[in-house]
Measured scan of single mutants.
Amino acid sequence: QVALSRTQVCGILREELFQGDAFHQSDTHIFIIMGASGDLAKKKIYPTIWWLFRDGLLPENTFIVGYARSRLTVADIRKQSEPFFKATPEEKLKLEDFFARNSYVAGQYDDAASYQRLNSHMNALHLGSQANRLFYLALPPTVYEAVTKNIHESCMSQIGWNRIIVEKPFGRDLQSSDRLSNHISSLFREDQIYRIDHYLGKEMVQNLMVLRFANRIFGPIWNRDNIACVILTFKEPFGTEGRGGYFDEFGIIRDVMQNHLLQMLCLVAMEKPASTNSDDVRDEKVKVLKCISEVQANNVVLGQYVGNPDGEGEATKGYLDDPTVPRGSTTATFAAVVLYVENERWDGVPFILRCGKALNERKAEVRLQFHDVAGDIFHQQCKRNELVIRVQPNEAVYTKMMTKKPGMFFNPEESELDLTYGNRYKNVKLPDAYERLILDVFCGSQMHFVRSDELREAWRIFTPLLHQIELEKPKPIPYIYGSRGPTEADELMKRVGFQYEGTYKWVNPHKL
């Protein structure tokens, strides 16, 4: 086992960053958080920038500027975001240094004079007029057009580079997404736009490419001749908990499936790229999406959770019991969808996408189930092999396979070949997804960000279904809070070829 401390991990990262040409360590950078008073800024962006600063992973002359409508001070920003920093008493001095680099400007999102004030403020910072500028839009999409237009007109660096990070949702359907994309691309070049999907920053999602293309053993079996089906799962054990009003506007397909799960599907299904260059990788992902037809209604199961009468606390409440959810809402909190990649490698292999709230566990994984062994000599005792990439929690890679049961006879039983990170790298604290992705933006690497043509294809696949749901308002199937979801989803999976045995229990190697 390799035991690495946080300091050692960050030392390795620093070495990698400083050796590259793309990370300008000594240049002045300004990180501007648009929507600095909001939840995302408070819980994710400010803490992430602090962790990067604490670990010495930001360029040395980096300033952080918050911008929002609320009249706040840096002290206010500190008060609301610091509880999420997880700072230790030993880091007190470092924390003071961090907040000394912070400033805040209040202004409207659609007022040109406010942006001119913001620009004057940035120019007044040390070497601010020639600094590289990175704008993070932690804002609702309704203000994107006004904000990007004003940034472009008043706040661009004339000497350094300018980059803009856009948070999902990128529209509600193909038409609104196209409108937003066309607007942003009329102001910024594609190499300046970073559409963030934080799932692409997760260690195991990034590991998929290495697993596939750096190991000879997987190449020959990664196709329709050997793989019976692919299941991509995202499960949350909690409901909307008072935030249903926002969720109800989008629903589970827009929230998770059309982005996170579809991105994971691309990494499983794509061909080997010409290189690890950002556009070479994204070219292959677009090719996969172009091979997927629009979702067919007979390959869809929609569910909505109801309270568990035997549960406790939140578990007793259904989705419609959330006071922020519109009365009688038919918005799905669970969806199972089957897609097919219609190309030579994957023809006929079902890709089953499942996601839901208020389920029995927290889990995100990719599961490849292989065909049955031909010419069975073990009297149907063999179960199908599976390769599982567990994204969260407890990152893991393992192969479910058959071995001989101890004893006199040739009785096979299920076991696993474990390729888990935790076994080799004991207690290594890896940077989280937002840390990686923000560092990628500083480096100018777009590999783990969504390109406009990729986004367009993703919406093309799901828009007809979303429009049909909005028009017909089908009643989702009720499922109990804390269950596996509607049984109809299991029946759909069985119908397209997935075999669920229920006889195997994964042993978490992190707890051995």
Rank of each mutant, 00 (worst) to 15 (best):
E294H: 09
V295D: 05
D347F: 09
Y479F: 04
E294G: 13
D280W: 08
E284C: 13
S329V: 03
F378L: 11
Y500P: 01
P350Y: 00
Y479I: 04
W346H: 03
R282L: 00
K429R: 11
M447W: 03
L302H: 07
Y500I: 06
H467G: 14
M257D: 04
E312D: 12
V301C: 12
K383L: 13
Y319M: 00
L289P: 05
G318L: 00
Q296V: 14
L492H: 06
V496E: 14
L466M: 10
T316A: 14
H260S: 03
T330N: 13
R282I: 04
S329F: 03
Y425K: 05
C266D: 04
R282T: 05
M493L: 13
D280H: 12
F378T: 06
D255S: 03
G328Q: 15
S329P: 05
L320C: 09
Y398N: 02
V295K: 07
P309V: 14
L417C: 05
N259Y: 02
P486M: 04
I480T: 15
V286D: 07
Q499E: 15
N343W: 00
K473I: 09
E488L: 11
R384Y: 02
M270N: 02
G356K: 02
T503K: 15
A274C: 11
N298V: 14
A358P: 04
V300H: 09
E395C: 09
P273R: 03
M401V: 14
I438R: 04
T330R: 14
I469R: 04
K317N: 11
L387E: 05
K405E: 14
V450D: 02
K383R: 12
G348C: 05
R424M: 05
D440F: 02
W459N: 00
T324Y: 09
Q304Y: 07
S278N: 15
V325Y: 08
V300R: 08
L359E: 05
G348I: 05
E454P: 05
A489V: 10
Q468I: 10
R345G: 09
D347A: 09
G482E: 06
R390Q: 13
L466Q: 05
E435V: 09
H467Y: 12
K285W: 02
L465P: 05
G375Y: 12
T316G: 12
L339I: 10
V281E: 04
Q258E: 09
A274V: 12
Q381V: 12
E457K: 02
T503I: 10
N427W: 08
I477S: 14
Y305P: 00
R327Y: 09
S293I: 06
E413F: 12
N423G: 08
M264I: 12
G422K: 09
L437N: 03
M264K: 04
R384P: 10
L455E: 05
L339W: 03
K473Y: 10
P431F: 08
R460D: 05
K363E: 07
V366A: 08
V295C: 14
N423C: 10
D280M: 11
A458D: 01
T399Q: 08
Q380G: 15
D453I: 05
L353G: 05
L289F: 07
D322T: 05
A332C: 13
L419Q: 09
P486A: 04
L465E: 05
L471H: 15
R362C: 08
A364M: 13
P309I: 14
E470H: 13
E294N: 13
E416C: 06
P486I: 06
D279L: 11
V349H: 01
E395I: 06
T333W: 03
V388R: 05
E413Y: 08
I477N: 13
F351I: 09
T324P: 07
N423W: 10
N259E: 03
N394I: 06
N277M: 10
E395Q: 09
W506E: 05
A269S: 12
F409M: 14
W506P: 05
W506I: 02
E491V: 15
E395M: 07
Y425H: 12
K287H: 10
T333N: 01
V338Q: 12
I438K: 00
A364N: 03
H448P: 08
R424C: 05
F370E: 01
H448I: 01
V325W: 07
Q369M: 06
A269Q: 00
K473V: 11
N385W: 03
K405L: 12
G318M: 05
I469Q: 13
Y500K: 06
Y481L: 08
D279F: 05
K405I: 14
A335G: 14
G307Q: 12
V300K: 09
T487E: 15
T399S: 14
K317E: 13
D490N: 14
F378G: 04
L320G: 11
P486S: 00
K400N: 03
F410W: 15
K285F: 01
K400H: 00
Y425V: 07
Y319F: 05
V256T: 09
L265R: 02
E342T: 12
R460H: 08
P406M: 06
C266A: 10
Y319D: 00
V301N: 06
L471W: 12
G407F: 02
L430H: 09
Y421L: 12
Q263N: 04
E454N: 03
L302C: 08
E414S: 11
M264Q: 06
E386Y: 00
R282S: 04
N259M: 04
H467C: 10
M257T: 13
N427F: 10
A364H: 04
F498V: 13
K494A: 14
K475M: 14
D322A: 03
Q369C: 07
C443S: 10
G307L: 07
R390A: 13
M447N: 02
D283F: 01
A335Q: 03
D310C: 13
N299R: 11
Q369A: 06
E386F: 01
Y500N: 10
T330I: 12
E314P: 11
T503Q: 15
R484N: 01
P323Q: 11
S415E: 03
S329H: 05
P486E: 01
A364C: 13
L492C: 07
E472R: 15
Q304N: 04
A315W: 11
M402F: 12
D372H: 10
Y319V: 05
I292E: 05
G422P: 09
K475N: 14
K400L: 03
L302Y: 08
S445P: 05
Q499C: 12
D347Y: 08
E454L: 06
K475H: 15
F351M: 06
V428A: 15
K404G: 02
P393V: 03
P486Q: 03
V286Q: 09
T503A: 08
D418F: 02
V281N: 04
R390V: 09
W346D: 01
K287F: 06
M402T: 13
D280N: 10
L471M: 08
P350M: 00
C382A: 15
P464D: 11
V496T: 13
G313C: 12
W459T: 03
E457S: 09
E312F: 14
Q446N: 03
K405D: 07
Q258G: 06
L430R: 14
K475Y: 11
L387D: 02
E386I: 00
P273H: 01
D255E: 02
S293T: 15
S445C: 13
Y319I: 00
G444V: 00
L265D: 02
F370I: 07
E395G: 11
K272S: 07
T420S: 15
Y319L: 06
R345D: 09
S278E: 10
R384Q: 08
D490I: 09
E472S: 13
K287Q: 09
G407I: 02
L471S: 15
G485W: 03
G482C: 05
G407D: 12
I477T: 13
R424Q: 05
K363W: 00
V349E: 00
N277C: 11
V301Y: 02
K287C: 09
L289C: 12
T324E: 07
G356P: 04
R495K: 11
E414H: 09
V268G: 06
R354I: 01
V397S: 02
W459V: 01
L439W: 12
L439I: 09
E414M: 15
K429P: 14
Y398L: 01
L289K: 01
L419I: 07
E271W: 00
